[in-house]
Design a protein around this nucleic acid. Structure first.
Lengths: 191, 191
DNA sequence: GGTGCCATGTAAGGGGTTACATGATTAT
DNA sequence: ATAATCATGTAACCCCTTACATGGCACC
């Protein structure tokens, strides 16, 4: 059984031959937002895929610079299509910012505002990255890649809007509201 | 250095004493959507936290059923607050559905529609879960937990809307459009 | 002569899931 | 009876990240 990361490699190679370095670059400017991969995965995985006959490596050493270009085989392409066709949509998330915010009732208001601000800043950074990608390679993308990019942009816009309104709410509560109570309700005492 | 999962445990214990089983249940009905945890993490982590003096375990064996309840110590609470106050918002995602859709240009139109439908179905399932949580415990939540829940609901609603419009687009293209070309553009040939 | 990109790898370790193993208690 | 829930744990394994190590080539 191949890992999803193996399929990412196959997918990028199905467009044309690439080095490990090339694949890493492709991942970093596209799938990284929903599927990252490091050299520590890519190079060993290329070996395994070659051993399994799903890709072939060709020495393209130029001068003294080592360089191996990999190409997908018919077998590899078959496996890729099979994987693509099989509908599976597992989605896992690890959002440290959201986690802290979830428990932010433990904090005093100023710190809670700082927490939401950190999330907002982070989402803005990512949105900027996505917008840059859109601007630079947006019109070269096939309809699916384009749709996924737009989806990402929409998600982050939504997230930022939510951050803004929550932050605004916390700020008004803090300035106008009750003589600040660090924890705001009695239910915290009960187990 | 404690893992984020250790802090999740501390955070749940800061409300009141709990068994490993209790903590797992809490995680499953709340943080799981942005921070999951399994027994395989929780029980060993409880040991480590107890060894570090951040929590204390008390035997509450009833009859012949083993049961250890853990409570947070002042040290543990201090560490928790410290972690909560430190703004860090790293967010990682692994979305298999999106990954497949990203490469769906390799598929024929019917399979691509199946891929987006699978994503849509999955997002709907999750949205239903979130709505159930909202209905059942929605009004017991503190403002932060409530805000995070609303955020999740908003995100999934957005995702579903995007799925619907993309699917509609693919379906009209398929029925009306060109005499179906499996791969739709020439740029696929170039590396 | 230096910076930055091209290029390939490995080793250690962290974090996490899954499957297994066991058994008590409670509700139907 | 038997199914569901309460309750605890471990071992194997997987996937991945980080840090390190090395060096060529091109451009300024």
């Amino acid at each position: 059984m191949l890992s999803n990361t193996a399929y990412v490699i196959l997918a990028f190679l199905s467009v044309g031959p690439k080095t490990g370095y090339d694949i890493k670059a492709k991942v970093d400017q596209s799938t990284r937002f929903f599927w990252a991969a490091s050299y520590g995965q890519i190079y060993p995985e290329l070996r395994k895929l070659a051993d399994a006959g799903l890709i072939t490596g060709t020495e393209k050493t130029q001068g003294k610079r080592a360089r191996t270009e990999y190409a997908i085989t018919p077998d590899g392409h078959e496996r890729l299509i099979e994987w693509l066709r099989y509908p599976a949509a597992s989605c896992e998330m690890r959002d440290e910012g959201l986690l802290k915010l979830f428990f932010a009732a433990e904090l005093d208001p100023a710190d809670a505002i700082a927490a939401i601000s950190a999330i907002e800043a982070d989402k803005r950074r990512t949105l900027t990255e996505l917008r840059t990608i859109e601007r630079v390679v947006g019109d070269e993308l096939d309809p699916f890649k384009s749709a996924v990019l737009e989806y990402g942009i929409g998600l982050y816009e939504h997230a930022i809007g939510w951050c803004e309104s929550l932050r605004a709410e916390l700020e008004t509560q803090r300035s106008s509201g009750s003589t600040q109570s660090p924890k705001q309700s009695p239910q915290h005492v009960a187990g």
